[in-house]
Amino acid sequence: MASLRMMGVLSFLLVFSSFFVLFINSDDGGTLLEIKKSFRDVNNVLYDWTASPSSDYCSWRGVSCDNVTFNVVALYLSGLNLDGELSPSIGELKGLLSIDLRANRLSGRIPDEIGDCSALTNL
């Protein structure tokens, strides 16, 4: 009986640690901050995109995350009056499915790195 309980505890710890490692390996918040650097946010609409320890990037304006992996799956940044260009860092958002940048004043080329977002279906 004790060995069954021990196996149950070990199984739980294995699943929990796998989830924890997945969460730690995701640096989507840091990637979003790199992307923000390439924008000129003249109206400060991305004010909540901050490196503050209490800041949860999944609750930032225009960001949608997967509820299990916490990977960024969508960026809805249309009509925010953003200037600048899209950072090559966008390619680091491996779980990105959709990005909407309409009605902004972005310029430049779409970075080749966006091809690294292999799940992207809506641009």
Rank of each mutant, 00 (worst) to 15 (best):
M1T: 12
A2K: 12
S3I: 12
S3T: 15
L4F: 00
R5L: 15
M7W: 07
V9D: 07
L10K: 08
F12C: 03
L13N: 00
L13T: 11
L13S: 05
L14C: 13
L14M: 11
L14W: 11
F16L: 06
F16W: 06
S18F: 11
F20T: 15
F20E: 12
V21H: 12
F23Q: 15
F23G: 10
F23Y: 14
I24C: 15
I24G: 02
N25M: 12
S26D: 14
S26F: 00
D27I: 05
D27N: 10
G29V: 07
G30F: 03
G30Q: 05
T31V: 14
L33A: 02
E34C: 03
K36D: 03
K37I: 09
K37Q: 09
K37W: 03
F39P: 01
F39A: 03
F39K: 01
R40Y: 04
R40D: 00
R40T: 05
R40S: 04
D41E: 13
V42R: 11
N43H: 12
N43I: 14
N44K: 03
V45I: 07
L46S: 06
Y47H: 06
A51E: 04
A51D: 12
S52P: 08
S52D: 13
S52W: 04
P53N: 05
S54L: 14
D56N: 15
Y57D: 09
Y57Q: 11
C58T: 06
S59N: 15
W60H: 03
W60N: 01
V63M: 00
S64A: 01
S64I: 09
C65E: 05
N67A: 06
N67K: 11
T69F: 02
T69C: 05
F70A: 07
N71I: 06
N71K: 07
V72L: 02
A74M: 10
A74H: 06
A74Y: 04
L75Q: 04
L75G: 05
L75T: 09
S78P: 14
G79C: 13
G79W: 10
L80A: 08
L80C: 02
N81I: 10
N81A: 06
L82P: 04
L82N: 00
G84M: 03
L86T: 02
S87T: 01
S87Q: 01
S87W: 01
E92I: 04
L93P: 01
L93M: 02
L93D: 08
L93H: 01
G95R: 10
G95H: 10
L96W: 14
L97V: 13
L97G: 02
D100I: 09
D100C: 05
D100N: 07
L101Q: 01
R102V: 01
A103M: 13
A103R: 15
L106S: 01
S107H: 08
G108Q: 13
G108M: 08
G108F: 09
R109S: 03
R109N: 00
I110R: 13
I110C: 08
D112S: 04
D112M: 05
E113F: 10
G115H: 08
D116A: 11
C117F: 14
S118P: 07
S118H: 07
A119W: 09
T121E: 15
N122I: 09
N122F: 12
L123H: 08
L123S: 13
